[in-house]
């Protein structure tokens, strides 16, 4: 979450709760809502590393709030994050290990494993369909995120079929 907070702070100084709201508004329903505790812990670490600094702002009838802003070092770190190439998804597939290893032990049959997994993927897809239908079509960021997840699932299903053709 560090670079995400740096990016939001590069736009304008903010306190922790404002950052939480900004994340939620930008990513919409597709993004698992960040927990405020996590945000404060991350801000604390960024401050310790000199990437952000905080100033206390007085509020009437309330305790002071800490408003964070980006330092020059923070901006450098943000630029480096934006410019470095992003790793693609890696195949770290637990299911594939089951598929290859379980039949060797006689615990499970490959066809049954593949069939169960296929239904599991479709049930995830059904969730995404529901989520998409509940998402405001004007919210393009959330829509694209869900669509991306759907395309990944479709690829997983196609790959499952390949496994079935070659291994089963």
């Amino acid at each position: 979450m560090r670079p995400h907070l740096l990016a939001l702070l590069a736009k304008e100084p903010a306190h922790g709760y404002e950052l939480k709201q900004a994340l939620e508004q930008t990513f919409g329903s597709a993004y698992p809502s960040p927990n405020i505790g996590q945000i404060y812990v991350t801000l604390g670490r960024l401050e310790k590393d000199g990437l952000v600094r905080a100033v206390d702002v007085e509020q009437s009838n309330r305790p002071n709030k800490k408003v964070y802003y980006l330092t020059a070092k923070g901006r450098e770190s943000l630029t480096a994050w934006v410019e470095e190439p992003t790793e693609g998804p890696r195949v770290r597939d637990e299911f594939f290990m089951k598929l290859v290893l379980a039949p060797l032990t006689g615990i499970a049959d490959r066809m049954a494993l593949i069939s169960r997994q296929r239904r599991h993927y479709l049930s995830l897809m059904a969730d995404l369909n529901d989520l998409l239908s509940r998402t405001d079509p004007r919210d393009r960021v959330a829509g694209l995120l869900i669509e991306g997840a759907m395309l990944h699932l479709q690829a997983d299903l196609d790959w499952l079929e390949r496994c079935q053709e070659d291994l089963a």
Binding site: A30, S115, S123, L124, D127, L145, A149, H152
Partner: peptide
Amino acid sequence: IVDDGRIARRRTGTAGEVIDL
């Protein structure tokens, strides 16, 4: 036919299990 079964409906309300930002 090698498999014939229901597609479970979970309705968890978030896509957290599939989307991991």
